[in-house]
Design a protein around this nucleic acid. Sequence first.
DNA 1: TGATGGATGTAAATAATTTTCTTGTTACTA
DNA 2: TAGTAACAAGAAAATTATTTACATCCATCA
Lengths: 280, 280
Amino acid sequence: MSAITNAIHEKTSSMNRKEKELADFILEHAREIVHMGITELAERSGASTATISRFCKQLHFSGYAEFKVKLSAELAGEAAAPAYQDIVAGRPLTDIIAAVESNHLRAIGDTARLIDRKALERAVLALRSARQIGVYGMATSGLVAQDFHQKLVRIGRSAHAFTDHHMMLTSASNLTADDAAICISYSGRTAETISALRCARESGAVTISLTKFGSNLLADLADIALFTSPLEEGMRRGDMASRITQLFLVDILFVALISDQFEEYVPRLERSFQMVRKYT
Amino acid sequence: MSAITNAIHEKTSSMNRKEKELADFILEHAREIVHMGITELAERSGASTATISRFCKQLHFSGYAEFKVKLSAELAGEAAAPAYQDIVAGRPLTDIIAAVESNHLRAIGDTARLIDRKALERAVLALRSARQIGVYGMATSGLVAQDFHQKLVRIGRSAHAFTDHHMMLTSASNLTADDAAICISYSGRTAETISALRCARESGAVTISLTKFGSNLLADLADIALFTSPLEEGMRRGDMASRITQLFLVDILFVALISDQFEEYVPRLERSFQMVRKYT
DNA sequence: TGATGGATGTAAATAATTTTCTTGTTACTA
DNA sequence: TAGTAACAAGAAAATTATTTACATCCATCA
């Protein structure tokens, strides 16, 4: 709890009926109040503008404007909300923002703590020495695959990303022992991605899986298994935090790869951006 | 540097004399401004109240009051979060994980604080009532576009995502006044995406831009401008945090949309997952 | 040099906030 | 129980802040 909300809370006992109502409303809707005028707050809280103005002065602010600015600053320093939040009906926008924010933040934090440095290290080595890299995933994981592909292309690495099952297999069947395949599936149970990994493995390539943490077929089959935080099922509805954490891992892989061969890759990266700017 | 001060800084080059003076004063005295009224700021900075009010609108704030509240939040959040880390050579894996993690966390936090609820509200309304939704973006922003498209398809909305310039225009030219277009570009200066927005606008559709915060052509042209935190240029090298924050906004839009019409969309969403499971 | 357009300020209009004043309620006392 | 003091709370007036419309000025270019 912040200094201001705390002060309001403490003061509650010495308050009148209306003031208490107002205090409760403010504590309840702190994040929205920051964007309301005094009139709007008056309407929504059931108190008059005069009462609110007096309330702010009691808290030793110069007025409502200062109260808002201070409250805004306080809330900014705080985490949005602690735990995973599910999508529910008819919530105000402020709650939705806070919920999505906290889910994302938490998912990234959880995933960071879960990372197995040894496995990551091996994955980076495999990618570094791969002649060619195949990246496979369906639906949302397909987008993550494409994202990694885009990054690899930017540094001039030979890579392919596929979302189409047949093309995945076609690509995987042409990999060799010099190559690597990275197969992405949140559940680790996606049939198409599993068969792509099997095919890549049969071709002799090093296989890397990227799935949620926990036992799953894709991770079990892979040479190197990377994991993201497994989220509450409710949240999966939109494939939101799962995709964020997969991208987070892709980013780490990419940065590790670059950091490894900085002098070679960074100029290529810069050049690729400059060229895009030049020709568009 | 915060998102807002950064945006002001960038804009400096395209400013008039008085505006530049004002911008300098604001950058210099950011922490004091939070406690000044527009009149006091006018006196101290040497600009008129009118110029200040216009200045705030140019930065896409609803007015001086909102500017102050957002600035206050930014300055407070700044202190709480660690600074952005750039990619550098030969760092140990542990450092890389920590750096990427903190960049992502910070980017999400910054973006959350920056969100304009009014604009978001309008965007949600536009998307809710749209007959058809066109989603356009190039490269990394193209993946974000596809992500939003996938989400919309899951809830049975009629939507199209394109990365191919010609197809963007073809799609945008077929939109009507009943439709909406959302155009994604981190810089807000991507030629193809800008022309797609122009085309959609000409077709009568409601246009929504999703760009980094700060003045940019795409945002200026759009009916509704949504923003993500503008990151240090160094980080752009990999399009990492920018993509995370764009997805963050897409997630918020999606959740808001669902939350709005919960009874209709949630069963569709569940059904779409079940069907995928059933047939694979 | 005069026209044009944009930048900027002034002042009017509007909106937001604070204060004053009045009313109504409670609680205490005669 | 009626009277009254004390105070809470809102309506509305007063004040203050912000935005907008309009006028002016200045630089630029023909």
